[in-house]
């Protein structure tokens, strides 16, 4: 099967700083792929280069056989990629429902209510809190709201940046169960995580990024057994 998303020798950065030097990776339709690495390794930068939030300086990004690099975030979202960014980036003074509906701003109204039903089925908590301001939610609820907002665009590929960051273990467990359900419905997931054990548990395959380069790639089992991963990321 050919790749849904393919990065080929991508370089991206901020000003003079090159945060991602040479990243090549593939995500196939229906997969959950983990991108793991320590702080500053280039995980977030890779996601931002995919969605057009940062320009790709070298190399290319392809989605379903078409080039993405050079497109702006609005066009990338329109092609079926939703980004759930680090620190969630909700609209704090707007209601949960408004936040969710903004995620589907480009879609027809009837489609939106279907998408809203789906999000509320996955996250019943959001249904209860739909009239509340997003800024008043707990961290876990905010993360659910951010994932929900991403799903509202009915993406083919969902990019998640550190969904477990700062959350209680119970909440993390709940969020990851939901991610599994989302993937089971046919949405491809590219997951950036520092919580390597959790990420590997959910993923089919994974990439390890170090100093802006892919250091290691393999299936879940291969990575879980790799001495390097065990030592550097799992602390075993």
């Amino acid at each position: 099967m050919s790749a849904q998303l393919r990065l080929d020798a991508v370089e991206a950065g901020y000003g003079d700083l090159v945060a991602v030097r040479d990243v090549s990776l593939e995500v196939r339709a229906g997969e959950v792929v983990a991108l793991i690495g320590s702080n500053g390794a280039g995980k977030t930068t890779t996601l931002r280069a995919i969605t057009g939030l940062l320009p790709v300086r070298r190399g290319r990004v392809e989605f379903e056989g078409e080039r993405l690099d050079g497109l702006g975030p609005a066009q990338v979202v329109a092609r079926g990629i939703a980004h759930v960014p680090e620190a969630r980036q909700l609209f704090p003074t707007m209601t949960v429902r408004e936040n969710l509906e903004l995620g589907a701003a480009r879609r027809a109204r009837r489609r939106r209510s279907d998408a809203l039903d789906l999000v509320f089925t996955l996250f019943p908590r959001l249904r209860e809190r739909q009239a509340q301001l997003a800024g008043t939610l707990s961290g876990g609820e905010q993360q659910m709201c951010a994932i929900g907002r991403g799903l509202m665009a009915a993406p083919k590929l969902l990019l998640l940046d550190e969904p477990s960051l700062g959350l209680a273990p119970v909440t993390v467990k709940l969020i990851f169960e939901n991610l599994r359900a989302i993937n089971a419905r046919g949405t491809t997931v590219l997951l950036v995580e520092q919580n390597v054990a959790r990420a590997l548990e959910l993923s089919h395959r994974g990439y390890v990024i170090e100093n802006g380069r892919i250091a290691l790639a393999g299936t879940r089992a291969e990575l879980a057994q790799s001495g390097h991963v065990r030592q550097a990321y799992l602390g075993l």
């Binding site: 969605t51 979202v77 939703a82 960014p85 980036q89 609209f91 701003a105």
Partner: peptide, 17 residues
């Protein structure tokens, strides 16, 4: 709503396209 969203969190508005 998009105007309010962009006022509330411009980066967030960019992220969702």
């Amino acid at each position: 709503r998009a105007i309010r969203a962009a006022a509330d969190n411009p980066y967030g508005a960019l992220v969702i396209g």
